[in-house]
């Protein structure tokens, strides 16, 4: 396949376009973008009386299920019991208990049900592993299919002459915005 055909495959590719018209395009673009994002990121820097403790409490509480409201975490729930649970978590953290110890305490009282994310052991490994297994198997499948199709094309390839291929590509490009039904 000639290089002429390759170039034509690009949609944006048009004759006479100059590269590097704005040498700093990339940098300017990145700066504009970040200028927009910074106002959002900035407030995280400033804090309140005891930010470390509060963030730790929030982190642990967001992994616990609010038992009176079905689908919210203890951190998010507005219910009274969740508020008491947050206070308890805060106390336990202040006593120097680790995240694991606090979780274990709640599991011993409410059962595994109280953990919003199933612990990664035993049967639960299925729910953690299957999605990635599915993606890997799927990716392998996509690769196999794509390769088979490529091979099929290469067998049929020699018959196409470059001028014809060029015309096909131009047609394809025109079909880029086909009419409605």
């Amino acid at each position: 396949m000639g290089s002429q055909v390759r170039g034509a495959g690009s949609l944006a590719g048009a004759p006479g376009r100059r590269h590097g018209r704005w040498p700093g395009f990339a940098l300017v673009w990145a700066l504009v973008w970040i200028g927009l994002v910074i106002p959002g990121v900035a407030p995280a820097a400033s804090g309140s009386p005891n930010p470390d403790l509060e963030d730790q409490v929030r982190e642990i509480a967001s992994g616990l299920r609010c038992v009176v409201c079905q689908n919210l975490s203890v951190a998010d729930s507005p219910s009274d019991l969740a508020k008491e649970m947050r206070n308890l978590v805060r106390e336990l953290v202040q006593q120097g208990k680790s995240r694991e110890e606090i979780q274990a305490y709640f599991v011993s009282r409410y059962g595994e049900f109280v953990l919003l994310s199933p612990p990664k052991r035993g049967f639960n490994l299925l729910v953690w592993g299957l999605p990635f297994l599915a993606i890997v198997v799927g990716a392998w499948g996509v690769y196999l299919v794509a390769r088979r199709w490529t091979l099929r094309r290469e067998e049929a390839e020699p018959a196409v002459d470059p001028a014809y291929a060029e015309r096909v590509r131009r047609d394809l490009r025109e079909r880029e915005g086909p009419a409605g039904p």
Binding site: V67, V68, D80, L81, E84, M85, N87, L88, R109, Y110, G111
Partner: peptide
């Protein structure tokens, strides 16, 4: 107070 006993008993409601 603080629902301490309730949480210790795994009370839902």
């Amino acid at each position: 107070p603080g629902s301490k006993i309730s949480i210790d008993y795994g009370v839902y409601g």
